[in-house]
Design a protein around this nucleic acid. Structure first.
Lengths: 141, 141
DNA sequence: TGTGCACCCTCCCATCATGGGAGGGTCAAG
DNA sequence: CTTGACCCTCCCATGATGGGAGGGTGCACA
């Protein structure tokens, strides 16, 4: 398999296949006489692993650790689980941040007329004199 | 106010204050004889607006639009609202993606022993032969 | 056999928001 | 007048990704 085929087989762009090799995430592909990269079934499997880990939001450095564990028959599943749960906590943190942004914005947008008049609670909140933007917590009850 | 004070007053790092000026998001600060940047109360207010918009996840280009609207007395609140709701939709999209990652990972981690043995559904899922990682949908009922 | 097109190669640059650091000037307190 | 905290500009790095130039390869078809 040459790189374009590997790209289709793995869902990783040609650019990224070369990049993952360059940064040492995966071993350099074999080369044909022409210089073309040649991918074995095994390397395709590894790359698929990488893509799935990316799909789960792992960063490249974490994927390197996961690959090590995957390829190390004497691993402890505790190590994998630890890596995964740490990652889940990071994702959850990001979700909390998103939630707060969304709640605030929805609250503000809800109270914006959205017509030709200029007054708008969104801008008012962003431009308020006191230090923090209005949060969409409770509506002052 | 010089830049360090402005940084404390706005919650924006000194580096970013200079950066926002450089890319034209905010007007260049006045300069003292020494070359030091001097911030007026008005520019502090603008920078606070910027920080709050960042806190809500707006990108710099969107903030530029928001600033324009904020400073344009003849704006239509519909334009602000439209910008905000578009942004909310992007945030919600990102949240959906996070949700899926989290659900999948929690599902897999839940079924991982997390002990000294090597077998682990997380790695199994990432390394599976078929094309997609196991999703944490229903357990096939 | 030639020609053309799709593909591959490397190298460089750009993104976005942010920080680090070098090398050097300014200012105020002691 | 020194010291230390602060400021200046300029360059580089990050992480993951894409774009494009300039040039080689390989296959299919005339």
């Amino acid at each position: 398999m040459i790189i374009g085929e590997a790209s289709k087989a793995t869902g990783i762009s040609v650019k990224m296949l070369r990049y993952y090799e360059e940064i040492g995430l995966v071993r350099p592909a074999l080369r044909a006489y022409s210089g073309y990269r040649i991918y074995s079934d095994k390397s395709i499997a590894t790359l698929r692993f990488v893509r799935r880990a990316r799909d789960l939001g792992f960063q490249v450095k974490q994927i390197a650790s996961l690959l090590d564990l995957w390829q190390n028959g004497s691993r402890a599943s505790a190590d994998v689980k630890s890596l995964a749960t740490t990652h889940v906590q990071e994702l959850e943190q990001r979700r909390r941040e998103l939630d707060e942004m969304i709640a605030t914005l929805e609250h503000l947008a809800h109270h914006c007329h959205g017509d030709q008049r200029p007054d708008c609670p969104i801008l008012q909140s962003l431009g308020a004199e006191d230090s923090a933007p209005q949060k969409a917590t409770r509506p002052r009850g």
